[in-house]
Amino acid sequence: MLGLGIKRKLKIFVKVNWIKTLYFNFKMFPFNIAKKLPVFFYGSVKFSNLSGEVIIDAPVRLGMFGFGQQFEVFTRSKKTSEINLSGILKIKGNVHIGKDCFLYIAKEAYCEFGHMTCLGYNVKILCTDKIILGKWARVAYESQISDSNFHDTYNTLTKERYSKSGSIVIGNYNWVANRSTIMKSTVTPDYCIIASNSLLSKDYSKLGNYILIGGVPAKLIKEHVSRDWEGEKATLEKNLIIRI
């Protein structure tokens, strides 16, 4: 951790849950990767299932995946963080997950986090099929992403059965505002802003990049709009990435 100042080193050392950090890394990775401690856990977290697989598709670095990090205005934890991992989780760079998040990846399901993916406070990911979050996809507090309805439904006239699951793809440089719900079969384009309290359940990629969508159900609100990613990158990387 030579790239960090002394005070920040001490702050990180104190806040890391070293028991869960060591257990997870040496259980989920071969020794040559585990010894680098790519995954850090902060605070309380429950491992309800770790029978799945974690793949790092990026240079392996110390603490590149932080679970339970403090980076928002919320400073208190309800101690409800939980991981249920039976399927595959692929990490494609630095990933930042806030307090009290829930990550569920079912058996044979696939979940992918791009570089600088971020989940805010109390975000829930429920993956039974496939969920992909692109690079710099940032999901604000109390949002949820679920690729399944979890219950079978059918047409009462034709008896046609409807699929209860459908893959989700969140594009690069997406900003999902607080308390949004993203359901099965959702696809968003790159450089997309999703307004607070929105409900998404279809393919929005044909609307093009640099858009604002929102509502219940979500629809196009504004074109030619973008979060100032370039203006924020330096600050986010400085505050969120642990450098060796």
Rank of each mutant, 00 (worst) to 15 (best):
M1V: 12
G3D: 12
G3I: 03
K7S: 11
K9V: 06
K9G: 05
L10V: 13
K11C: 02
I12T: 03
V14I: 12
K15F: 02
K15A: 02
K15L: 08
V16H: 14
N17I: 04
W18A: 06
I19H: 13
K20F: 06
K20N: 14
Y23M: 03
F24H: 09
N32L: 01
K35T: 08
K35R: 06
L37W: 05
L37T: 04
V39G: 05
F40H: 09
S44A: 12
V45D: 12
V45T: 07
K46G: 10
S48N: 14
S48W: 05
L50R: 13
E53P: 03
V54L: 03
P59M: 13
P59R: 14
V60N: 09
F67H: 10
G68C: 04
G68N: 10
Q69G: 06
Q70G: 07
E72H: 04
T75R: 13
T75F: 06
R76Y: 15
R76Q: 15
R76P: 03
T80W: 12
E82K: 09
E82Q: 08
E82W: 04
L85S: 11
G87C: 09
I88W: 12
K92C: 02
N94W: 00
N94K: 05
V95R: 01
I97Y: 03
I97Q: 03
G98V: 08
G98M: 01
D100E: 11
I105Y: 03
K107E: 15
A109S: 10
C118E: 10
L119S: 08
G120S: 10
Y121F: 08
N122A: 11
V123N: 11
I125T: 02
L126G: 14
K130D: 15
K130R: 15
R138N: 05
A140I: 03
I145W: 07
N149Q: 05
N155I: 08
T156K: 13
T158S: 15
K159F: 12
K159R: 15
E160H: 13
S163A: 13
S163F: 05
K164W: 07
S165Q: 06
G166W: 07
S167G: 00
I170P: 06
N172K: 00
N172R: 00
N172H: 01
Y173I: 00
W175I: 04
N178P: 02
N178G: 11
N178Y: 09
N178M: 11
T181Q: 05
T181C: 08
K184A: 00
S185A: 13
V187L: 04
V187D: 10
V187A: 03
T188G: 09
A195K: 12
S196N: 11
S198M: 10
L200Q: 04
L200R: 01
S201M: 07
S205P: 04
L207C: 01
L207V: 05
L212A: 13
G214D: 10
V216W: 10
P217N: 14
P217S: 05
R227L: 05
T235M: 02
K238W: 00
N239V: 01
I241N: 06
I244P: 09
